[in-house]
Amino acid sequence: TETVELHKLKLAELKQECLARGLETKGIKQDLIHRLQAYLEEHAE
């Protein structure tokens, strides 16, 4: 999932992505995007 794609997701979809990775789901859309980006960078293959 790339940065551009995360911005296209709806808030509910971002929350699902966070939940699937065991991440916090509180906060505004930008918080969730930032959290997912950090996770994806950390776990990049």
Rank of each mutant, 00 (worst) to 15 (best):
residue 26 K to S: 14
residue 20 A to N: 13
residue 18 C to W: 00
residue 26 K to R: 11
residue 2 E to Y: 15
residue 34 H to V: 12
residue 6 L to G: 03
residue 41 E to L: 13
residue 21 R to I: 01
residue 45 E to C: 08
residue 40 L to R: 14
residue 18 C to F: 05
residue 13 E to G: 03
residue 26 K to I: 09
residue 3 T to S: 10
residue 12 A to E: 14
residue 4 V to R: 12
residue 3 T to E: 13
residue 26 K to N: 13
residue 37 Q to K: 09
residue 38 A to S: 11
residue 37 Q to F: 03
residue 18 C to G: 00
residue 38 A to E: 12
residue 6 L to T: 05
residue 29 K to R: 13
residue 25 T to V: 11
residue 24 E to Q: 12
residue 11 L to V: 09
residue 27 G to V: 00
residue 26 K to V: 13
residue 36 L to D: 02
residue 19 L to K: 12
residue 43 H to I: 05
residue 28 I to V: 15
residue 19 L to M: 09
residue 31 D to G: 01
residue 20 A to K: 12
residue 45 E to L: 08
residue 25 T to H: 05
residue 2 E to M: 14
residue 13 E to C: 05
residue 15 K to H: 04
residue 15 K to V: 06
residue 27 G to C: 01
residue 45 E to G: 12
residue 25 T to Q: 04
residue 40 L to G: 12
residue 34 H to N: 12
residue 3 T to K: 15
residue 7 H to R: 11
residue 21 R to W: 02
residue 33 I to K: 06
residue 38 A to L: 10
residue 28 I to C: 15
residue 24 E to G: 07
residue 12 A to N: 10
residue 24 E to R: 05
residue 35 R to Q: 04
residue 4 V to W: 15
residue 33 I to P: 02
residue 16 Q to G: 06
residue 7 H to E: 14
residue 40 L to S: 14
residue 30 Q to V: 10
residue 28 I to S: 15
residue 38 A to M: 08
residue 2 E to L: 13
residue 27 G to H: 01
residue 15 K to Q: 14
residue 2 E to F: 15
residue 36 L to Y: 02
residue 39 Y to G: 06
residue 5 E to P: 15
residue 4 V to T: 14
residue 22 G to W: 00
residue 2 E to Q: 13
residue 12 A to G: 10
residue 36 L to F: 02
residue 41 E to D: 13
residue 30 Q to K: 15
residue 17 E to A: 06
residue 19 L to H: 11
residue 21 R to T: 01
residue 11 L to H: 05
residue 39 Y to S: 09
residue 36 L to V: 04
residue 4 V to S: 15
residue 5 E to F: 09
residue 4 V to E: 13
residue 42 E to L: 10
residue 6 L to I: 04
residue 9 L to P: 01
residue 31 D to A: 07
residue 9 L to W: 08
residue 30 Q to Y: 08
residue 21 R to D: 03
residue 2 E to D: 14
residue 23 L to P: 00
residue 14 L to A: 01
residue 27 G to L: 00
residue 25 T to P: 10
residue 37 Q to M: 06
residue 30 Q to I: 14
residue 30 Q to C: 08
residue 35 R to H: 05
residue 29 K to C: 03
residue 34 H to L: 12
residue 28 I to Y: 12
residue 28 I to M: 13
residue 21 R to Y: 06
residue 32 L to G: 02
residue 3 T to A: 10
residue 11 L to C: 07
residue 14 L to E: 00
residue 25 T to G: 05
residue 2 E to I: 11
residue 28 I to W: 07
residue 10 K to S: 12
residue 3 T to Q: 13
residue 8 K to S: 12
residue 23 L to F: 00
residue 24 E to K: 06
residue 33 I to S: 04
residue 41 E to R: 14
residue 27 G to R: 00
residue 16 Q to R: 10
residue 44 A to W: 06
residue 9 L to V: 02
residue 11 L to K: 10
residue 4 V to F: 14
residue 7 H to Y: 05
residue 2 E to K: 14
residue 15 K to N: 01
residue 41 E to G: 12
residue 1 T to N: 10
residue 37 Q to E: 13
residue 10 K to V: 04
residue 32 L to S: 04
residue 17 E to T: 02
residue 42 E to Y: 05
residue 28 I to H: 14
residue 34 H to M: 15
residue 15 K to G: 01
residue 20 A to V: 11
residue 11 L to N: 03
residue 30 Q to A: 13
residue 21 R to L: 08
residue 30 Q to H: 04
residue 45 E to R: 11
residue 25 T to K: 01
residue 36 L to C: 03
residue 17 E to G: 01
residue 14 L to R: 00
residue 25 T to E: 06
residue 31 D to P: 02
residue 18 C to P: 00
residue 16 Q to H: 08
residue 38 A to P: 07
residue 3 T to P: 12
residue 37 Q to Y: 05
residue 13 E to F: 02
residue 13 E to N: 03
residue 39 Y to R: 07
residue 36 L to Q: 03
residue 5 E to T: 09
residue 31 D to W: 00
residue 23 L to N: 01
residue 35 R to P: 03
residue 42 E to W: 04
residue 42 E to S: 12
residue 15 K to C: 05
residue 32 L to F: 00
residue 39 Y to Q: 06
residue 11 L to G: 02
residue 19 L to P: 01
residue 20 A to D: 07
residue 9 L to A: 05
residue 2 E to R: 08
residue 43 H to N: 09
residue 40 L to Y: 14
residue 26 K to C: 13
residue 37 Q to L: 07
residue 19 L to D: 04
residue 4 V to M: 14
residue 40 L to V: 10
residue 43 H to V: 07
residue 42 E to C: 12
residue 17 E to Y: 06
residue 24 E to Y: 03
residue 39 Y to W: 13
residue 41 E to F: 03
residue 30 Q to D: 14
residue 39 Y to V: 06
residue 26 K to M: 08
residue 19 L to S: 10
residue 43 H to E: 13
residue 6 L to W: 12
residue 20 A to C: 06
residue 30 Q to E: 13
residue 4 V to P: 12
residue 5 E to I: 15
residue 11 L to D: 08
residue 24 E to S: 13
residue 42 E to M: 13
residue 27 G to M: 00
residue 9 L to T: 01
residue 6 L to V: 07
residue 45 E to M: 08
residue 21 R to V: 04
residue 7 H to P: 08
residue 21 R to S: 01
residue 16 Q to L: 09
residue 11 L to R: 05
residue 19 L to Q: 14
residue 44 A to P: 14
residue 22 G to S: 05
residue 36 L to G: 03
residue 33 I to L: 10
residue 41 E to N: 09
residue 38 A to C: 09
residue 30 Q to N: 15
residue 42 E to R: 12
residue 25 T to D: 14
residue 7 H to K: 06
residue 27 G to S: 02
residue 1 T to E: 14
residue 37 Q to T: 08
residue 10 K to W: 00
residue 7 H to D: 08
residue 22 G to R: 04
residue 10 K to H: 12
residue 20 A to P: 00
residue 7 H to T: 13
residue 18 C to S: 00
residue 8 K to V: 04
residue 8 K to Q: 07
residue 29 K to P: 05
residue 1 T to I: 13
residue 14 L to V: 02
residue 10 K to M: 06
residue 31 D to T: 06
residue 5 E to H: 09
residue 22 G to M: 01
residue 3 T to L: 13
residue 20 A to E: 10
residue 7 H to L: 08
residue 44 A to D: 15
residue 23 L to E: 00
residue 7 H to S: 14
residue 24 E to D: 15
residue 36 L to R: 02
residue 44 A to C: 15
residue 20 A to S: 10
residue 15 K to D: 01
residue 33 I to H: 03
residue 5 E to V: 07
residue 6 L to M: 07
residue 3 T to H: 07
residue 28 I to D: 15
residue 38 A to F: 08
residue 44 A to R: 12
residue 1 T to H: 01
residue 45 E to S: 04
residue 34 H to Q: 14
residue 5 E to L: 08
residue 10 K to R: 11
residue 29 K to E: 11
residue 39 Y to N: 07
residue 36 L to P: 05
residue 39 Y to H: 13
residue 22 G to Q: 03
residue 27 G to E: 01
residue 35 R to C: 02
residue 38 A to K: 15
residue 39 Y to M: 04
residue 33 I to C: 09
residue 7 H to M: 08
residue 42 E to A: 11
residue 3 T to W: 06
residue 17 E to F: 11
residue 12 A to I: 09
residue 8 K to M: 08
residue 34 H to F: 11
residue 11 L to A: 06
residue 7 H to F: 07
residue 15 K to W: 02
residue 36 L to N: 03
residue 1 T to G: 12
residue 40 L to N: 15
residue 13 E to Q: 11
residue 44 A to Q: 14
residue 23 L to M: 05
residue 28 I to E: 15
residue 37 Q to I: 04
residue 22 G to L: 01
residue 37 Q to A: 11
residue 33 I to A: 06
residue 41 E to H: 07
residue 37 Q to R: 11
residue 7 H to W: 06
residue 21 R to C: 04
residue 19 L to Y: 07
residue 17 E to L: 05
residue 7 H to C: 06
residue 1 T to S: 11
residue 18 C to L: 06
residue 5 E to N: 11
residue 12 A to V: 10
residue 14 L to S: 00
residue 29 K to G: 02
residue 20 A to R: 12
residue 14 L to T: 01
residue 39 Y to P: 07
residue 43 H to C: 06
residue 28 I to A: 15
residue 10 K to P: 14
residue 33 I to Q: 07
residue 9 L to N: 01
residue 21 R to F: 05
residue 4 V to Q: 13
residue 26 K to W: 13
residue 27 G to P: 00
residue 13 E to V: 07
residue 6 L to K: 03
residue 5 E to M: 11
residue 40 L to A: 12
residue 10 K to G: 13
residue 17 E to D: 02
residue 6 L to F: 02
residue 12 A to H: 14
residue 43 H to P: 06
residue 11 L to Q: 04
residue 26 K to E: 14
residue 18 C to H: 01
residue 9 L to G: 01
residue 19 L to E: 14
residue 36 L to E: 03
residue 22 G to V: 00
residue 11 L to T: 12
residue 12 A to L: 08
residue 11 L to M: 13
residue 2 E to S: 10
residue 24 E to A: 12
residue 29 K to M: 05
residue 3 T to M: 15
residue 38 A to W: 06
residue 18 C to T: 00
residue 12 A to R: 10
residue 38 A to G: 13
residue 1 T to Y: 04
residue 43 H to G: 10
residue 15 K to I: 08
residue 10 K to C: 13
residue 18 C to K: 00
residue 12 A to D: 14
residue 32 L to P: 01
residue 13 E to R: 07
residue 36 L to K: 03
residue 32 L to E: 02
residue 34 H to G: 13
residue 43 H to A: 10
residue 13 E to D: 07
residue 33 I to M: 07
residue 44 A to Y: 08
residue 7 H to V: 05
residue 33 I to Y: 05
residue 30 Q to P: 08
residue 45 E to V: 09
residue 25 T to R: 01
residue 15 K to Y: 04
residue 11 L to E: 10
residue 15 K to L: 04
residue 2 E to T: 13
residue 34 H to A: 14
residue 31 D to S: 04
residue 21 R to H: 14
residue 26 K to T: 15
residue 40 L to W: 11
residue 19 L to N: 08
residue 28 I to G: 15
residue 23 L to T: 00
residue 40 L to P: 12
residue 14 L to P: 00
residue 4 V to I: 15
